[in-house]
Amino acid sequence: MSLLRIRNLTVEFATGGGQFRAVDSVDVDVGEGEILAIVGESGSGKSVSMLATMGLLPWTATITADEMSFDGQDLRRLSGRARRQIIGRDLAMIFQEPMSSLNPCFTTGFQIREALRQHTDLNSRQRQDRAVELLTMVGIPDAERRLKAFPHQLSGGMNQRVMIAMAIACRPRLLIADEPTTALDVTIQAQILDLLTGLQRDTGMGLILITHDMGVVAETAERVAVQYAGQKVEDQPVADLFATPHHPYTAALLAALPERATERRLATIPGVVPGQHDRPQGCLFSPRCQFADERCRTVPPPVQPAELGRARCHYPLHAPEVAA
């Protein structure tokens, strides 16, 4: 059964130029112990869809969905108390920018103990012990001393680990990690990814990893959802996605990877992602798609069945030949 189940999630922002649809009819399923990667270019709605799930969007956002449930409980109808039980405890998130989510005025120790105070009944001694244990778990040496440090006294990699320590403080059942390594060097990135997947293995929690890095996806995820312009355009197990992408956008993205290049000139995707004011009529990828025809330009494509990667496309790639 799905731990997190979202159906037909749409998020619109009221902006000076009118309503802007940042997330468009997205479905998400992630099970206990599963690693789902959400991949897509910047602005494709990865963060907004997860912030909506966490209930962390500003009032300018209008959220609609047919279903948004965690472990069977409707996330939109939670009472204040039930909400605190789940958000930040069973369902935790690591944000894209560690420095913007750690409070510069408090020591890391204070911030971790505070998270524990809000969500557990540990006493103050136990909270301190658990804080030391957590920092050690995330690979921060000399934990007691580091707990007395302020965020600006630690490196980016250290702060990212502090964030992870805070997020896992209450043993979440699902951890959402939003670009947790984008700002870090590769050797530190490797350590953080190993840490996250290790935690996931040891505790059996579910993990949603938001990233734009296909290498990170390939090495970390079990299943991958590809987003484009606010829509999920494909959803497949990781090996299948890389071997037989069904959506032309996924295929084009993979072809553009320098490491897959067969010639000096790289494959490109012409044009840019549509903006608020030039959203196409039919398929959102049609202005850039090499297979687009009149139907693509006028009729929004259906979501194909799971065997075809749930591709949102009229003409999914690698489809079995239809007998005439």
Binding site: V186, E219, L254
Partner: peptide, 24 residues
Amino acid sequence: RALLSATPRAEPGAGRRRIELKGE
């Protein structure tokens, strides 16, 4: 070697041994 081994490759199941570096 460590740098190369830490660079994720877009090849699922390539199954490389990652060299883990101590410290920062």
